[in-house]
């Protein structure tokens, strides 16, 4: 998949990289078990500090999205992922966003629909790639 980092973006570079890899996995652009480039090569190709890529990879490893091996390097984690504690994590992420939505007068149904649309958007990419749109 093509990774694209925006140097003028709001998010720090490492979290942009982390987000893109997670989206890539969800959208099927990166397959479970697929090898990822080395930290050094990826940093050189994007044009960012090695530590930035290291930080993103370490974060993805801690979150269980990728596995890292001293010899064979980084790879997308095999399925199924360990989902223990995921709901707590999701709730922590979504609570302030739900609050923002309330401040902007979205009701529960509108907010739910918005989330479902985004979910579908990522899924659609995967479905198209797997040949059943």
């Amino acid at each position: 998949m093509i990774i694209q980092i925006d140097f003028a973006g709001d998010l720090p570079l490492y979290s942009q990289l982390r987000d893109q890899i997670v989206i890539g996995i969800a959208a099927g652009l990166l397959k479970p078990g697929e090898a990822l480039p080395s930290v050094r090569r990826l940093a050189a190709d994007i044009g960012i500090n090695i530590h930035t890529v290291n930080k993103a990879y370490a974060l993805l490893r801690d979150e269980g999205y990728i596995v890292m091996d001293r010899r064979s390097g980084a790879a997308v984690a095999p399925r199924p992922l360990d989902s223990r504690g995921f709901f707590e994590h999701l709730a922590d992420l979504l609570r302030p966003i739900a609050a923002e939505a309330i401040c902007h007068e979205l009701d529960a149904e509108q907010f739910g629909r918005f989330c479902a649309d985004l979910h579908r958007q990522v899924r659609t990419v995967q479905d198209i790639r797997e040949g059943h749109p």
């Binding site: 694209q4 480039p37 190709d45 960012i48």
Partner: peptide, 9 residues
């Protein structure tokens, strides 16, 4: 900054 994962690999 752009990179393609398979090409980088």
């Amino acid at each position: 900054g752009t990179a393609e994962t398979r090409s980088s690999l």
